[in-house]
């Protein structure tokens, strides 16, 4: 984990927001990853000195505004996910690659589950199985984040 500049963090957040605002078409909406979520969770785990729960919450608020959903919904789930991520943040170096993937899948799954719960409370209907597809695309985006900004786990040979 090499230290990053604050400006890098802000720049990735902006890029994530632009991708979030991209006009996705029919199938795109189904498989589109949660750009801001992946980017923010990555920074929470990689650089907690830049990105705290407040920033993640703010990113969630931006998602709320861009989707036009109830203000605070995504913000709440983003904050909870970031907190769950932070619990194990200092132990991540002990994880191997696959444990980290599992952990990240768990985090993304929790976020989608919480959103689903909130929507169901608001009178929404249960979506079909394709609702869980973005977790896969989230993981692909996560892999890109690792390639661009560095591994979270400790390299094997030290």
């Amino acid at each position: 984990m090499k230290p990053v500049k604050f400006s890098t963090f802000l720049f990735t957040m902006l890029v994530g927001l632009i991708f979030q605002l991209y006009p996705w078409s029919n199938t795109g909406v189904i498989i589109r990853p949660d750009f801001l979520l992946v980017i923010m969770i990555y920074w929470v785990l990689q650089a907690p000195y830049h990105c705290n729960i407040g920033w993640v919450w703010f990113a969630g608020l931006l998602v709320d505004l861009s989707t036009g959903s109830l203000l605070g919904q995504h913000a709440l789930t983003f904050a909870i996910t970031a907190f769950l991520g932070l619990i194990y943040q200092r132990r991540l170096v002990l994880f191997n690659r696959w444990q980290l993937y599992l952990y990240v899948i768990f985090l993304f799954g929790v976020q989608r589950g919480l959103i689903l719960l909130l929507k169901l409370f608001a009178g929404g209907e249960l979506p079909d199985w394709t609702y869980s597809l973005p977790v896969v695309s989230d993981l692909i985006l996560w892999q890109f984040m690792i390639i661009w900004f560095g591994e979270l786990t400790r390299p094997k040979k030290l």
């Binding site: 705290n52 729960i53 407040g54 919450w57 969630g60 608020l61 109830l70 203000l71 605070g72 919904q73 913000a75 709440l76 904050a79 909870i80 970031a82 907190f83 932070l86 619990i87 608001a122």
Partner: peptide, 21 residues
């Protein structure tokens, strides 16, 4: 602490959701 931050932002977003709804 992360937990106190979480509590603060959870409350904030719950209030916002209530006000927005």
């Amino acid at each position: 602490k992360p937990f106190s931050r979480l509590m603060f932002f959870c409350t904030l977003s719950l209030v916002m959701m209530a006000v927005d709804a």
